[in-house]
Design a binder for these strands. Structure first.
Length: 557
RNA sequence: UGCUUAGUGGUGUAAUGGUAGCACUACAGAUUCUGGUUCUGUCUGUCUGGGUUCGAGUCCUGGCUAAGCAACCA
């Protein structure tokens, strides 16, 4: 149980809010969801699910300059793909009318004023974390003038940037957010994706979020640590209005009060978790798009071959605390391997092929071998592998002069098993002028077929193969970590200089004919290579596989 | 020099005054028709000084360190 769940259970015990549990996931529709958001999603939806409550989706769409419907659609799709069910879909823009009225009321109570200074002047006056700020010269306008100007702002009579509405709190407050925070600014240059040109003023996050929670009846407003310093302001605005129940706007009675709680956000090594940086990577063509398999976005992870179950399991493993840390990318990879090893059919794919000729196999012979998709799991089915005199094997599986650490195919070596087929012994090879092996020769034991009595003989090594006449050429995209350094965000260099130049290698492999009919999102283990998924752009005549994760390999040492 | 938050093995996370545990990583061995998997084992930890207590990772107190906060972003 994490510390948020402890808070919830305590609240439940004390019958706070009559035992009602309501959370919300509040994305801003200005980018695609990434795995950091998934951590928040698992929290928000998880709490609601576990404690018999509801989690609503609320788009925090208070800034039309950055937001777009494109993102609303992708966000809902991603959440659905992850397997979460929201109660209702709300938008902060649903409350623009109420929020505007609250602002008017605030002005009438002498708690807000219209400031005509430039953004630079306001910033300069704000002071620093260690020095108090100065009052604005416009701070003590009359209520009537404030009212008139704010209405003029909304009427479209004031150009963008010329005026803002500020709360009159305390320019000397040690919490910078209390130094007369801006409540409303003018935006006329961009129509809002839902309200169009209806509004010329838009509320800031601090004036919108808590009130939106209140309108909806949210009990636990859970967010990440950077909002800790905003919490006093969240409480402040609600306190100002909750006295008379927001003039009757809450259906939950006078004792109801939403509370904000914060947990540590997710950081993962060798990646970035900033929407701004991701947008830059996309816009500058440094990746193929938001769903590039190297991206930490939900759609990128999906295209990489991560399953919703594995992603949720990963979030479950890392937990929730208030300690800011950095998760090993290795843990994420471990989680997808853990899932795929149970369900991904094994197939042979030869990445660096060299011809193997079995000299004592009949010249025009051939046969079909039936192999289990996963050894020892007959319930997952079988596949057919054509076998013949000429095969493709991995170049690295043959060494003309082997040392004792190499126990695969070699004329000097021992017998070797062809996976699911026969036991062979290398006899020699052909080489080109440069000394590269062009063909390997071997003899086989016809009585050693897998599954027969003669096949029970032990071999030290088993190698992969694909029959040359039936092999299919497939494009394989070998993905690796996006960045070359562990923590790109902490590096003084521009993050774009830190990209891993080997994050994608495209190559061709000879794959089994059984893969002819694969469909998008099918998962496989290419034996000894790694886990691969069929790419969204794959076609029957041009198969494309993305490497989800490599297999662990202890041999290189 | 302010406010806020936080310090448990390499990483993440438990222990709610009573044997510092789990997962990942690393290493070693066994098993294996994947140099994968599986199994077994090993290494490594309570930021620090003082105090309370029979007993402190936990409570009190001083210090140290780190992160966040000065968008008309969320």
């Amino acid at each position: 149980m994490n510390f948020i769940e402890e808070i919830v259970e305590k609240d439940l015990q004390e019958r706070k809010n009559n035992g009602r549990i309501q959370t919300r996931f509040p994305p801003e529709p200005n980018g695609y969801l990434h795995i950091g958001h998934v951590k928040a999603i698992c929290m928000d939806f998880g709490i609601a699910e576990k404690y018999n409550g509801v989690c609503n989706l609320r788009f925090d769409d208070t800034n039309p300059v950055k937001e777009d419907v494109e993102y609303v659609d992708s966000i809902t799709q991603d959440i659905a793909w992850l397997g979460f069910k929201w109660g209702k879909i709300y938008y902060a823009s649903d409350y623009f009318e109420q929020l505007y009225n609250l602002a008017i009321r605030f002005i009438k109570e002498g708690k807000a004023y219209v400031d005509e200074q430039t953004a630079e002047q306001i910033a300069a006056q704000k002071g620093t974390p260690t020095e108090a700020g100065q009052n604005s010269p416009y701070r003590d306008r009359s209520i009537e003038e404030n009212l008139r100007l704010f209405e003029a702002m909304q009427a479209g009579e004031i150009p963008d940037g010329k005026m803002v509405l500020r709360a009159k709190i305390d320019m000397a407050n040690p919490n910078m957010h209390f130094r007369d925070p801006i409540m409303y600014r003018i935006i006329t240059t961009h129509p809002h994706h839902r309200t169009g040109r209806r509004w010329n003023v838009y509320p800031m996050y601090d004036f919108a979020h808590g009130q939106s929670d209140y309108f909806e009846g949210v009990t636990h407003s859970i967010c990440t640590l950077e909002f800790v310093v905003h919490r006093p302001l969240y409480d402040y605005f609600i306190d100002q209005f909750a006295g008379d129940n927001f003039a009757g706007l809450s259906p939950y009675g006078p004792d109801y009060r939403p509370h904000q709680y914060e947990f540590n956000r997710l950081n993962i090594t060798y990646t970035v978790m900033s929407k701004r940086k991701m947008l830059q990577l996309v816009q500058e063509g440094l990746v193929a798009g938001w769903d590039d398999p190297r991206m930490p976005t939900v759609c990128g992870l999906r295209r990489r071959g991560y399953t919703a179950g594995a992603i949720r399991s990963f979030i479950d493993k890392i937990g929730y605390t208030k300690v800011e840390g950095m998760i090993d990318l290795g843990l994420l990879e471990h989680t997808i391997r853990e899932e795929l090893k149970e369900q991904a059919p094994r197939v042979c794919a030869i990445f660096d092929p060299v011809k193997l000729v079995i000299t004592n196999y009949p010249e025009n012979g051939g046969e079909i071998i039936t192999a289990e998709n996963i050894d020892g799991k007959p319930e997952l089915g079988t596949r057919e592998m054509p076998f013949g005199r000429e095969l493709w094997i991995e170049r690295g599986d043959f060494l003309e002069e082997a040392d004792k650490n190499f126990y695969r195919l070699s004329p000097m070596g021992r017998e070797v098993r062809l996976k699911s087929a026969y036991i062979i012994q290398a006899t020699g090879c052909d080489k080109d002028a440069d000394g590269n092996v062009t063909t390997v020769y071997a003899t086989y034991d016809p009585d050693s077929k897998s599954g027969t009595e003669g096949g029970n003989r032990k071999t030290k090594a088993t190698i992969n193969w694909v029959e040359s006449g039936s092999a299919i050429d497939a494009e394989v995209r070998l993905y690796d970590r996006l960045f070359a350094v562990e923590n790109p965000s902490a590096d003084e260099r521009d993050f774009r200089e830190l990209l891993n130049p080997d994050s994608l290698k495209v190559t061709t492999a000879k794959v089994e004919s059984a893969l002819a009919g694969v469909e998008k999102q099918d998962h496989f283990q290419f034996l000894k290579q790694g886990y691969f998924v069929v790419d969204d752009d794959s076609k029957p005549e041009h198969l494309i596989f993305n490497r989800t994760a490599s297999l662990k390999d202890n041999w290189l040492k």
